[in-house]
């Protein structure tokens, strides 16, 4: 069997974020989060609900990459036309996404960088559903390249998703739905379990040091127990391979390194 890759380790870590989430919609945007959510459904958390990436709910997660159109088997229906009233605004969802920036409060940005609202220096996608997602349901994040450009010093350029920043909380607002859960990167796994929801490193990928993570982060990090991120099991690796038959995962992290660093 070929060597386990760092991406596969990340997929396994992402799947853990969905463990025991219950009967909610698990949405992974991008190959690693999607494979992570699918792996969770096929192993420890079968009660998760999942779409085919379009409009139907499937009980058998859809593999990524090219294939015949008709091999999806809808068991239910969740089109965009009822996505907000069924999934998002009822809190019945856990999304794992990759914003462009994330700050020490867990505030995220997908809209623009630099310049102004009127004339951004770099226009990106727009806030999409981030404001609603973050105030109503659980969110986790995956970043393939942990760096201070992503984990910014100060605050993100355009706050597109709610974080734990007290200065941004209007009196009387209901923030009880805000639930930022896990951050998986190419270096480590973090959560929001520090003081006042500060970001905390909870596990380091094999061979990575806390100092290395600090160096790649624009803000101070808290130290959790700092265990080593577990290697994926043989069963998990087999499922990942089935869900990604074209090995799209090989192109997610630069140079597709092995999970265990070689000297």
């Amino acid at each position: 069997m070929s060597e386990v890759t760092l991406t596969e380790l990340c997929i396994f870590a992402c799947s853990e974020a969905f463990r025991n989430n219950g009967e909610i919609v698990a949405t992974g945007v991008g190959p690693v989060p999607r494979l992570g959510a699918s792996l969770a459904k096929l192993t420890h958390t079968p009660e998760l609900m999942m779409t085919d990436g379009e409009a139907y709910l499937v009980e058998q997660p859809v593999p990524i990459g090219p294939r015949g159109y008709d091999d999806r088997k809808p068991a239910g229906y969740l089109p965009f036309s009822r996505f907000f009233d069924s999934a998002v605004w009822t809190g019945r969802r856990h999304a794992m996404v990759t914003p462009t920036q994330l700050d020490r409060f867990g505030q995220i940005n997908l809209s623009y960088m630099g310049g102004t609202y009127q004339q951004p220096k770099t226009q990106m996608l727009g806030v999409r559903g981030f404001p609603g997602n973050t105030i109503y349901h659980t969110n986790s994040f995956f970043f393939p390249a942990h760096s201070p450009r992503v984990f910014v010093e100060g605050e993100v350029d355009m706050i597109s998703g709610v974080g734990y920043n007290p200065a941004k909380r209007v009196a009387g607002g209901n923030y009880s739905g805000v639930d930022l859960r896990v951050i998986v990167t190419n270096l480590c796994v973090m959560d929001f379990g520090g003081k006042d929801n500060a970001i905390r490193v909870v596990s380091l990928h094999p061979g990575v040091t806390f100092e290395e993570v600090e160096e790649a982060t624009g803000f101070p990090l808290e130290k959790g127990d700092l265990v080593e991120t577990p290697m994926p099991t043989a069963e998990a690796l087999e499922i990942i391979a089935q869900l990604d038959p074209h090995n799209i995962r090989a192109s997610v992290i630069k140079d597709n390194p092995p999970a265990k660093r070689t000297a």
């Binding site: 907000f84 009127q118 004339q119 226009q123 404001p131 609603g132």
Partner: peptide, 25 residues
């Protein structure tokens, strides 16, 4: 093609007024 290139050009040139909203809003 995630980033719509002509929209980006107009935005980065400051040519249009905007009201940016969440998809659900």
């Amino acid at each position: 093609i995630p980033l719509e290139p002509w929209f980006r050009k107009a935005r980065q040139a400051g040519e249009i007024e905007v009201l940016e909203l969440d998809e659900g809003m």
